[in-house]
C-alpha cells in the first residue's frame, strides 16, 4: 500500500510520489490535493483486489459529496490544462536550490529535505541535536513578516515549505527573500 495522501496530484513534481521510487502498489490512498480544499479522499486498487472487500465494508453518509466531486473534476482539469505537475517540478527545483543556498549561510540550518513542492528545512543546535526551538522562532518570525509556513519533525526541528502548485517564479523568489530575512533575524 502506498500512502499518496500528501504526495499525490503533482505535489512532488511527478503526478504520484511513487513515480520517483518505481513502486507498484496493490492499494493506493489519495486525498488532499484532489479537490483544492473540499474534503474528499479515497483508495484505488485493481478490480481483483477491490472485489475482495467484504459486503457492507464500504459506504458512508457524506462520502463522495457532489460538490466535492465537482470541485475535484475541475481541479484535475486545471492540473492538466495549466501544466501544474511540471510547474511543481520547476518551482520545486528553484525553491530547493534557493533554500540550500541560504542554508549555506547559517550553521544552524543543516539540511534541506524533500521533493518537488514538498520541502523542509532542518535546524540543528551546536551539539548536533535537532533544534525545535530555532525552527519555532523562524516559523513565528516568518509568519509575522507575511510568510506562512509549517513545522514538523519528532522534535519540531523542521520548517516546511509546501505552497500551491500554481506558485510562480516571482512568488518563490519573494518567499526566499522573506526566509533569508527571517533567518538573519532569529539566528
Amino acid at each position: 500500500m502506498v500512502d499518496e495522501v500528501q504526495t499525490g496530484f503533482g505535489r512532488t513534481g511527478a503526478f504520484w510520489g511513487q513515480e520517483h521510487f518505481g513502486l507498484t502498489p496493490d492499494i493506493q490512498m489519495f486525498a488532499k490535493g484532489i479537490a483544492s480544499g473540499f474534503p474528499i479522499s479515497g483508495i484505488a486498487a485493481s478490480e481483483a483486489v477491490m472485489s475482495k472487500a467484504w459486503p457492507g465494508s464500504q459506504g458512508g453518509t457524506y462520502r463522495a459529496n457532489a460538490v466535492a466531486c465537482a470541485a475535484a473534476v475541475a481541479t484535475l482539469e486545471v492540473i492538466q490544462e495549466e501544466g501544474l505537475v511540471a510547474n511543481a517540478a520547476a518551482r520545486g527545483a528553484q525553491l530547493k536550490a534557493g533554500l540550500e543556498e541560504i542554508a549555506e549561510k547559517f550553521d544552524a540550518v543543516t539540511a534541506v529535505h524533500g521533493l518537488g513542492l514538498m520541502l523542509a528545512v532542518e535546524f540543528t543546535d551546536k551539539d548536533g541535536e535537532p533544534d525545535g526551538a530555532a525552527a519555532s522562532r523562524a516559523h513565528q518570525h516568518a509568519a509575522k513578516n507575511g510568510l506562512l509556513l509549517l513545522t514538523n519533525g519528532m522534535h519540531g526541528q523542521n520548517v516546511r515549505f509546501i505552497p500551491a502548485l500554481v506558485v510562480s517564479e516571482d512568488e518563490v523568489n519573494h518567499a526566499l527573500s522573506l526566509w533569508e530575512e527571517t533567518l538573519s533575524a532569529v539566528l
Binding site: G33, V78, A164
Partner: peptide, 14 residues
Amino acid sequence: HLDFTAGIGVTSTG
C-alpha cells in the same frame, strides 16, 4: 500573507 502551507498541501490549484 504569502501562503506556503496550502492548508497542509490541500489547495493544489491555489
